[in-house]
Nucleic acid binder design. Structure first.
Lengths: 268, 268
DNA sequence: GGACAGCGTTCCGACTATTCGAACGATTGC
DNA sequence: GCAATCGTTCGAATAGTCGGAACGCTGTCC
């Protein structure tokens, strides 16, 4: 949860920019169409002030006004930003071909994610190449967010965080039960992260949703920092835990290690 | 090219927001790492002013500072925006399953795009389901942009624009030759758009790149406005023009019509 | 090793863009 | 036809913003 209160009141901070972006991100979830008054209420500003920001955003192409309802929605210009963010990631560029090969070799869906606070953000995704395969699709795509504590990708990334960063991340976690085996306490998560770090990979056995298993491995850059993680997602009825860890895990770890090597990582 | 000069100086416009977003979008292409001075030069502002915006953006998570180089890069928060834009598109939501079915049925890559100025922006993409298939991948993904005049998707969208909008769009086109058959004059493009509108679909026969053929059909909403377009992309060595237009074109048009119907479109 | 140029950052007073309330025209529901 | 709500415009008081100057730092060049 990011505080919406005043950040700094002194110099070195732009109130207008913060408010403009606040308005822009109000379009995130839920209703994609918002009016000036509606926005004013959610961000706590007068209608006239909101209108100024909205007009600016519309002029620049970040918002579009619906001619009938007079309400606003996000414009194509916003896409630019999102995708330049993704494309400016070196990891993703380097990893892409390896992930595709991994997906082709195993026949399962492969995902890559980074950590942002307590969330993971998908930055690459190769769907299972076998069509008829039972689909475990939680409507995930590049850019989707999931809580870190109940995903294999998230646990691997949390496990390799420095102590202070890990503490900070764990502080903000809301341990909601989401699947049969969700980890629901900080204590249990800490033990799990310790195990993950020792093993070098993380397993998710129906912690996020019923029927969903996955295994994830970290990707290190040349600073030996875990900048991303890759996983293989399977349906629990198709792959046993043993098979997941032993057979698929080995293939996955090899792929992850290749990517790390390309990023200049040298194992100790 | 979007003018960077003053927009309005009166009321109803936020200078700070424009400048903040200008800085944010300076990270778009090219170097993903930018410093304060560098930014100041590109956007024409003093270092101190730029620093205020950059600090604000970093606090909010839209930028991240590299600890070593002190330079800035885009943060994960920017991803949110881009993907909420994509996900808030009703067309995309409705079309997704149809596109997947179209891709599975034909075995070819299916794309959906919208028009933004003279560019098309990919908003959905289903890769060819047959692996061994010869890949014609210009490193395209959701969010990618291509000039409209040399793509089937773009021509279909331009063809169904209202007269004033079409004029405005054509004015800005830079007719660069990009493939063996690129249309290189406004006159020729106008004739082609007329044909596209009559036929109800557009064909791209190596106008964008050597070896690349595609056929695109428009998607109409309940206002009978072409809000998006779908295409099938093939390699010229795999599919003849006749086959593309007759066999694949028919399947494509049916899929596009289904999506249009779901959006409430009623053919005249 | 000292001078220099470049960087990111901070500070400050002058300034101007931004603020909200009030008012307008259009639309909607009763 | 009235009342409520919408998006929008206007204005004067305000407060957030502006860029020059200065700081500490890191490299490079004699």
């Amino acid at each position: 949860m990011v505080g919406t209160e005043a950040r700094e009141s002194g110099t070195g901070y732009s109130q207008s920019l913060e408010r403009g972006l606040l308005i822009l991100s109000a379009f995130r979830s839920g209703q994609p169409q918002l009016g000036v008054s509606e926005l004013g209420r959610t961000v706590g500003l007068s209608r006239s002030t909101v209108h100024r920001y909205v007009a600016t955003l519309a002029t620049l192409g970040y918002l579009q006004q619906d001619e009938e309802t007079k309400k606003y929605r996000l414009g194509p210009r916003v896409l630019d930003l999102g995708f330049s963010a993704i494309n400016s990631m070196e990891v993703r560029e380097v990893a892409a071909p390896h992930l595709r090969r991994l997906s082709d070799a195993t026949g399962f869906t492969v995902n890559m994610a980074i950590l942002d606070g307590n969330d993971i953000v998908y930055v690459e995704r190769c769907r299972s190449t076998r069509p008829g395969q039972r689909e475990i699709d939680l409507n995930l795509h590049v850019g989707s967010r999931l809580p870190a504590y109940c995903t294999s990708l998230g646990k691997v990334l949390l496990a390799h965080l420095s102590q202070p960063l890990q503490d900070a991340a764990l502080d903000g976690i809301d341990f909601t039960r989401r699947g049969p085996n969700t980890i629901t306490s900080r204590r249990a998560l800490l033990a799990e992260l310790e195990r993950v770090r020792r093993q070098g990979f993380a397993v998710n056995n129906e912690e996020l949703a019923y029927g969903l298993r996955s295994i994830a491995a970290p990707i290190f850059d040349f600073h030996a920092e875990a900048v991303a993680a890759v996983n293989l997602a399977v349906h629990s009825s198709m792959v046993s835990m043993q098979d997941l860890v032993a057979r698929l895990g080995e293939t996955l770890r090899r792929a992850a290690a290749e990517v790390s090597a390309h990023l200049g990582y040298q194992p100790a």
